[in-house]
């Protein structure tokens, strides 16, 4: 049986990962404010069949507003909601809706987050808040869903996988990141291979609640 995968998010890293992940991959990029508890139940594949059971859900829903550096003093309340609150709530509602589909397959949920959450970055406060919230959401899902046979992880990625080159440079400066120890950043194929491995119960069946940093060794905090 083919592995059923749902990727939630538009642009990168979702788009890049979707092309590299193994299995029958369905990509959806909803507006965060439109995601409700029935979002996953309402999904339909290209051939018209409804989603019924999922082996892997990869969540990386970051609206454009999250990815634009802005000093907090210049953000409106609507800016903040669009950049942080709405996508945070969307992730929670995706998780709520995904639960029964993952439980049916003893599946895995992987949340991809930018490194700016763990490391902090000036002018990216909303994105940082969203990222840290999602990283810990994955831990909470791991704790509460383990008894249902569902595993959950967070994969932390370099800012360049979320931001434009111009904004990445600013974020790297603002975060005071070191150069990558490997001399390069991981490719989308390498990240997808790790996510594939996390979803494979033969290799990672005993692993849940992990917070992996895949950034080529730029940030090595505990």
């Amino acid at each position: 049986m083919s592995r059923d995968v749902l990727v939630v998010g538009g642009g990168d890293p979702s788009a890049a990962l979707a092309t590299e992940l193994s299995g029958d991959v369905l990509v959806k990029a909803p507006e965060p404010a439109e995601v409700d508890d029935g979002f996953v139940d309402g999904l339909v594949r290209d051939d018209g069949t409804p989603v019924d059971g999922l082996d892997l859900v990869v969540h990386a829903l970051y609206p454009d507003r999250s990815r634009i550096p802005t000093p907090i003093g210049e953000m409106t309340t609507d800016d903040w909601a669009a950049a942080c609150d709405d996508p945070l709530e969307a992730a929670i509602r995706v998780a709520r809706g995904a639960h029964r589909h993952l439980a049916a397959r003893s599946g895995t949920m992987v949340v991809c987050v930018p490194l700016v959450g763990a490391a902090g970055a000036a002018n990216l406060v909303a994105l940082s808040a969203l990222a840290e919230g999602l990283r810990v959401l994955a831990r909470s899902l791991a704790r509460s869903w383990g008894s249902d046979g569902i595993r959950a992880h967070a994969v932390t990625l370099h800012p360049s996988m979320f931001l434009s080159p111009e904004h990445t440079a600013a974020a790297v400066d603002a975060t005071a990141l070191h150069d990558a120890a490997l001399g390069r950043l991981p490719s989308a194929a390498e990240v997808a291979a790790v996510i594939d491995a996390l979803a494979d119960s033969r290799t990672a069946g005993g692993l849940t609640g992990a917070s992996l940093v895949m950034d080529g060794g730029t940030w090595m905090a505990g």
Partner: peptide
């Protein structure tokens, strides 16, 4: 994280992201 208070844990984590980035800003 928290098995029993997952939303609470999530929103409390956002505050840690805010702290780290605002400290830099």
């Amino acid at each position: 994280g928290s098995a029993n208070l997952p939303i609470y844990a999530t929103v409390k984590a956002t505050q840690r992201g805010i702290v780290k980035s605002l400290a830099r800003e």
